[in-house]
Simulated assay, not measured.
Amino acid sequence: MKLPQTPSLRLDGRSALVTGASQGIGLACACALAQAGARVTLVARNAERLEEVVAALRTAGHEAEGLALDVQDQGATRRALAGRRFDILVNNAGTNRPKPIDQVTEEDYAAVMALNVRATYFLTQTVIEEMPAGGSVINVSSQMGHVGAKNRSLYCASKAAVEGMTRAMAVELGPRGIRVNSLCPTFIETPMTQPFFQEPGFREAVLAQIPLERLGRIEDVMGPVVFLASPAANLITGSALMVDGGWTAH
């Protein structure tokens, strides 16, 4: 009797592009993909920090390169990536400006939507030009794309847009053999979220929503991103993988 074999979680021979990769979730995703065998290109605006991360990855024996780039500059991005082929794209670059709805400015709206939505959309458009069948696009979204929260109407709107584009892209790119999924973390302790936890009572309010009763760590996204990128997820597309400690199970 021939027993079924678990599809591999290895990514040897594959190339990956990760945005917002110099710190936090993006750094964790880049490390995870590299540790699974992928050749990783890390994109971020902070060239100095990017060089440090790439050097550390190479010292650890991984194939990595840095690309100092603002993904909001569509023209520069297209020029930098022209003719390059990636099997995996992780759209992680993002921002948040939490405010009461009556204090959100047009500039806030433009900044959040430009990075969280517009840059994700057009970078994907660029990368899929050369992406082969078997490719995987992973949009780092948020539990806030599925629930509402005080002072986060703008962020929730941007991540709900990411969820919508993920599903539509999955439908359109499926015939080409390209999968598109979103990864939806809860609050992960990163440099971006650290200031939020300085607010009185904020940590307690967040923990009250998480059945596992703890905040996320960057390591919590590493297994899920490798899974979505790997052959183990070959029939998964148009899905949102919740990494939220149970928040959205309420």
Rank of each mutant, 00 (worst) to 15 (best):
N46S: 14
G148H: 03
R14W: 05
V90Y: 00
F227H: 11
G13F: 09
A21C: 08
A233D: 06
I218V: 15
A229V: 03
I25Y: 00
R176K: 13
L17S: 06
G134C: 05
E129H: 09
A36Q: 10
L235M: 12
D244I: 07
D87E: 14
A161H: 12
R45P: 12
N234H: 12
R78K: 11
A240Q: 14
V112G: 12
V171G: 01
T105V: 10
F227R: 12
S182A: 14
M1P: 14
V104Y: 11
M144C: 04
A157D: 07
T59G: 11
V137P: 01
A30F: 00
N181C: 11
H146T: 10
R58G: 15
M144K: 01
F202T: 05
A34P: 13
L241M: 15
A36I: 11
F227A: 09
T95R: 12
E130G: 07
L235Q: 08
A160I: 02
T59W: 04
D12E: 15
R85H: 08
A119E: 04
A80R: 07
P200T: 05
R217G: 08
D12G: 11
P98A: 07
K2V: 13
G145D: 07
D87I: 04
A160T: 10
V53W: 01
K2D: 13
I138Q: 00
G13E: 10
L173R: 07
G245I: 07
A249E: 12
E65R: 15
W247I: 15
F122L: 13
P224G: 11
C156H: 02
V104C: 11
A157N: 09
V18F: 00
M165E: 08
P132Q: 08
L115H: 08
A157I: 08
G37F: 10
N91R: 02
F187D: 08
R97L: 11
R176P: 04
A64Q: 05
V18T: 03
M242H: 14
R10Q: 14
D108P: 13
P231L: 07
E219Y: 05
G94M: 03
M192P: 02
N181L: 04
P224N: 10
G61W: 06
E163P: 03
R167Y: 05
A38L: 09
A32N: 06
E51G: 12
V112Y: 10
A56I: 06
A38E: 09
L57E: 05
Q35E: 15
F197P: 01
D244A: 06
N139L: 02
L81Q: 07
I236Y: 04
S153C: 09
L9V: 12
R14H: 11
A240K: 13
G223R: 03
G177R: 07
S8Y: 02
L27S: 00
G37I: 12
F202K: 04
A170C: 05
T166V: 04
V112K: 11
A232Q: 10
S22V: 05
L123H: 09
R79A: 15
I236S: 04
V243E: 00
D87R: 03
P191H: 05
R176Q: 13
G164W: 10
P224K: 08
G164I: 10
E130M: 11
A36H: 11
A114Q: 14
A161R: 10
M192S: 03
H146P: 08
Y121D: 06
E63F: 05
A160Y: 12
H62P: 01
C184T: 09
E219P: 05
E106V: 14
K150G: 00
P4M: 06
G238L: 10
T59I: 08
